[in-house]
């Protein structure tokens, strides 16, 4: 079953194309990350999939419907975590979650949602008094209160401290564990690597690579860099598979107390991909 199916998606603002023919497939239950620098077209793509923006061309099916024309029943099945909302500043956290829960036929209990995002102790605080990170956690709460089948997260952890980010990751894993399909955009590579089953790198409105975090951009077959020191002098070898070399070194009784084996990180791969595109 496919949750999101995109073919040849295009979008231009005032004649400047920001999405130039994207193909995407996201399976049900999958966590899919869209990576890319600012201005790559991540938010535009996401907003078209959410039904917030019209597309200029291409085919889009989200949960079996065209987001451009889908109605209220369809919107009850998706959850959107907004990136820059500033609304309802004078309501309390509890009032807002309860209010939005009321839009759905079978919502999660507001208290449960507040516990999930760690805002239980801010329930009676006015939303305008929340910190940036707390505000984003409220946005997450409002995105999941309706038990969505598909959740859109557009740069959800911007402004989170490290602990909040880890807690947020646990929450996303728990939602994914319940079978929620998740489309995530992020700048943070470790976030994509920690959460995503598959990811796509977007640059200049095109997908430049797509795959699992481990295999992205030929990362799986890129080989490894083996380094060690002999009498304080650094020796480095780039090999497709480090096993034979290390066996050789062990058999030669080389001192391996300084041995390192590094494979390209997701960040290396990503930077190479978007660098090549420029």
């Amino acid at each position: 079953m496919t949750a999101i199916e995109v073919r040849g998606l295009r979008k231009a603002y005032r004649g400047r194309e920001v999405v130039s023919g994207i193909d995407l497939d996201v399976a049900r239950g999958e966590v899919f990350a869209l990576l890319g620098p600012n201005g790559a077209g991540k938010t535009t793509t996401t907003e078209i999939l959410e039904g917030h923006r019209r597309r200029d061309g291409g085919e889009v099916r989200v949960l079996g419907a065209d987001p451009g024309t889908a109605g209220s029943d369809w919107r009850a099945r998706i959850g959107i975590v907004l990136q820059d909302a500033d609304d309802a500043a004078d309501l309390t956290v509890g009032e807002m979650v309860k209010h939005v829960a009321g839009f759905y036929a079978g919502p999660r209990a507001p208290a449960e949602v507040l516990a999930l995002v760690g805002l239980t102790d801010r329930k009676d605080s006015r939303i305008r008094t929340l910190s940036g990170g707390q505000r984003r956690r409220l946005d997450v709460a409002l995105g999941i209160v309706g038990r969505p089948e598909l959740l859109f997260l557009d740069e959800p952890t911007t402004g989170f401290d490290p602990e909040a980010r880890r807690n947020f990751w646990d929450l996303i894993r728990a939602l994914a564990g319940e079978g929620t399909t998740i489309l995530l955009t992020t700048h943070y590579l470790e976030e994509a690597e920690a959460l995503a089953d598959r990811l796509a790198v977007l640059a200049g409105g095109e997908i430049v690579a797509q795959g699992t975090p481990a295999a992205l951009g030929g990362r799986a077959s890129a080989g490894a860099k083996v380094s060690w020191r002999v009498d304080g002098v650094l020796r480095t070898e780039q090999v497709p598979d480090p096993t034979p070399l290390i066996r050789e070194l062990v058999e030669a009784k080389t001192d391996l107390s300084t041995l390192t084996v590094t494979r390209p990180t997701l960040e290396d791969t990503y930077l190479a991909l978007i660098g090549a595109h420029r």
Binding site: G51, H52, I80, V100
Partner: peptide, 17 residues
């Protein structure tokens, strides 16, 4: 104001009409 601060955008992502 609702158009600017995200109120309308938020509501448009939910089943409310």
């Amino acid at each position: 104001m609702d158009r600017e601060d995200g109120t309308l955008k938020r509501l448009h992502g939910t089943p409310i009409s």
